[in-house]
């Protein structure tokens, strides 16, 4: 073995260290599992951290009820394969009030079904630490967030009052009701994630691979017609195109890209040659300037 660790070996070791530290220091941790590629890597790292035991915490999925069907299928399969308890939480009040991405706009919908849903679940199960798969290279406000990111009892992030984070010594202390969001892959970039998936042969949702799928063009994005709840607007036509997704979320808010990349190397090749960063496929970041920072202060991941 080479004495010098490669960048991926170093990132992997750092992430495993973080994951173990949480389990050693918190009473009731949970892993937020969003089913995307970053979650896939995070889950894989957790399995490595505790091998031969399964990770000693449950997975939590905050289901907005608008996820791609393939995501849900994949989620259930992974939880079963890893031997992990899967908690699925839906904001029932949001459902009762009929909040959908179509009727209430993406900002309110996201707030109610994702942010509020997440807070409800964290409160209900009294988790004191929640792993998330966010990376600092995704968005500018994330670049300054700590790996162990403190949340007040009402889940707020205070960017001006973050605990200094030195070396690999993480302050895990919280009072009752307070919690820490932990981002084990903070220092990974999108390319690192893809390279690692390739190297470790980590399973990902098939939606990342190109296939012919039914889509409509809406607001400059290609939206997949994943079920019959997507009502066509005048002039919209369902087309069958070879598309794939660079990022996964709620299907009415997630744009597909036209692509024929149906293997992992082809996806990575396409990513390296393309000139648009991944979150652009998500509507929610464009709502307002500094929108991610505002959402995060309010408790969004």
């Amino acid at each position: 073995m080479s004495k010098n660790l490669t960048h991926l070996q170093q990132l992997e070791a750092e992430s495993i260290h973080i994951i173990r530290e949480v389990v050693a220091e918190f009473g009731n941790p949970v892993m937020l599992y969003s089913i995307g590629k970053d979650s896939a890597v995070m889950l894989h790292l957790a399995r490595k951290a505790f091998y031969p035991a399964p990770p000693p915490f449950p997975l939590l999925h905050v289901d907005t009820t608008w996820k791609f069907r393939e995501m849900i299928k994949f989620r259930d399969r992974m939880a079963a394969e890893c031997g992990l308890e899967l908690i699925v939480h839906v904001n029932e009040e949001g459902v009762r009030r009929g909040v959908t991405p179509f009727t209430h706009g993406s900002a309110l919908y996201t707030d109610v079904m994702k942010t509020e849903g997440l807070k409800q679940a964290l409160d209900r199960y009294k988790f004191d630490a929640a792993f998330g798969g966010a990376r600092r290279d995704e968005e500018k406000s994330r670049a300054k967030e700590r790996i162990f990111s403190f949340r007040s009892a009402n889940h707020r992030w205070d960017p001006k009052n973050q605990r200094p984070e030195l070396w690999n010594l993480y302050n895990t202390r919280v009072k009752p009701g307070e919690s820490i969001r932990v981002f084990p892959i903070s220092n990974w970039t999108e390319l690192d994630v893809w390279q690692y998936i390739h190297l470790e042969q980590i399973p990902i949702v098939p939606l990342y691979y190109a296939a012919v799928r039914p889509v409509v063009e809406r607001d400059g994005m290609l939206i997949m017609v994943d079920d019959d709840r997507l009502e066509l607007k005048p002039g919209e036509v369902v087309q069958h195109k070879s598309v794939r997704f660079r990022t996964l979320g709620c299907y009415p808010l997630t744009g597909a890209v036209e692509s024929t990349a149906d293997t992992l190397p082809a996806i990575i090749q396409e990513m390296l040659l393309t000139r648009t960063s991944e979150r652009q496929g998500r509507l929610i970041d464009h709502d307002q300037a500094g929108s991610m920072e505002k959402k995060k202060q309010e408790g969004y991941f």
Binding site: R136, K140, S141, K144, P159, N187, L191, A289
Partner: peptide
């Protein structure tokens, strides 16, 4: 490209530790 937080941007200064990545 560096100054992440909106409040800081308005002040025109970086006030905390930010991490950036390139390769």
């Amino acid at each position: 490209l560096l100054d992440g937080l909106q409040a800081e941007r308005e002040q025109g200064i970086t006030i905390d530790v930010a991490y950036r990545y390139f390769s």
